[in-house]
């Protein structure tokens, strides 16, 4: 077979791999001052999929989210949304408006606003300066906010200032803000850090229900929680994928045991 034909076949294969993905990360590398945080990272997420990403501290999980959401630019590699939108060319606001929502590792809500206003600001719709200046709260918006309050179990905290919420409640509020954005893809960084066991359980349930009609990528250290999520797991190590599959499967992988679970 000629070389040209081989390349063609390879391209065709890659195209096929891409075709049915909501998120396609291929060969992404990024270096900070000589330190390789991501090393030719590749993975794919299918529409409607719930995916857990685990890996030791410093594996590059948060950096991966930074790349997808436009905060950090990769040195090399492709990041595609809905198999054709090149995310490496867009900035944070554009990517958010495309339908990718992100929860930070450290819960980040608008502390001086009420829970209600936090959700209102996240509510999908006009983001323009003058739209915001002349915006009046509509009934449809109000209804959506009320529904989200119920989903995130914060109905009775509606008029509470976000600064007064517990750590776990802030995590939920941030997830609620993502939902208000109506994203197709949610990236959730360590959602159960600082939560009680029962809160953790509720959060797993919440994320599973969210994943029914959206794609969700969850980064988490808590193995019980990951087990509760009951989904495909990707193990990151030193900036690339070490193993992928069901949790039981990856837990048996000797390399995974060595770098992560065994310790």
């Amino acid at each position: 077979m000629s070389e040209a034909a081989e390349i063609k076949i390879e391209q065709a294969e890659r195209k096929e791999a891409r075709a049915n993905t909501i998120l396609y990360v291929d060969g992404v590398s990024v270096t900070f001052d000589g330190f390789r945080a991501l090393n030719s990272l590749s993975f794919y997420v299918e529409p409607g999929e719930l995916r857990a990403i685990i890996g030791p501290n410093g594996a590059g999980k948060t950096t991966m989210m930074d790349i997808i959401t436009g905060k950090t630019r990769p040195d090399t590699g492709d990041v595609l949304f809905r198999s054709d939108v090149d995310l490496t060319k867009l900035d944070e606001a554009e990517i958010a408006n495309l339908g990718i929502g992100r929860k930070f590792q450290k819960p980040t809500v608008f502390e001086s606003h009420t829970v209600f206003d936090n959700l209102l600001l996240a509510c999908s719709g006009g983001r323009g300066v003058f739209q915001a200046l002349f915006h009046r709260l509509g009934n449809a918006e109000k209804l959506r906010i009320e529904q989200t309050l119920e989903t995130i179990m914060l109905v009775d905290k509606r008029d509470e200032t976000a600064a007064n919420l517990s750590h776990g409640q802030k995590q939920w509020l941030e997830i609620g803000m993502l939902l208000m954005q109506e994203p197709e893809l949610l990236l959730v960084d360590e959602p159960v850090a600082g939560m009680t066991d029962s809160e953790t359980e509720q959060t797993a349930k919440l994320l599973r229900s969210i994943a029914i009609d959206r794609s969700v990528v969850v980064v988490e250290h808590d193995m019980e929680f990951v087990r509760d999520l009951d989904c495909k797991v990707t193990v990151l190590h030193e900036g690339s994928v070490l193993a992928e599959g069901r949790l039981d499967h990856v837990q048996k992988d000797p390399r995974v045991i060595e770098v992560y679970l065994g310790r």
């Binding site: 606001a93 408006n97 915001a132 915006h135």
Partner: peptide, 28 residues
């Protein structure tokens, strides 16, 4: 007091969160 004002306060408190929520912080 407008929604714009709430966005401004949000920028004051957590600028990157506002960006990832889809607002163009620089225009505000």
């Amino acid at each position: 007091n407008s929604r714009l004002g709430k966005v401004l306060i949000a920028i004051r408190d957590a600028e990157s969160r506002v960006r990832f929520t889809g607002y163009r912080v620089e225009y505000y």
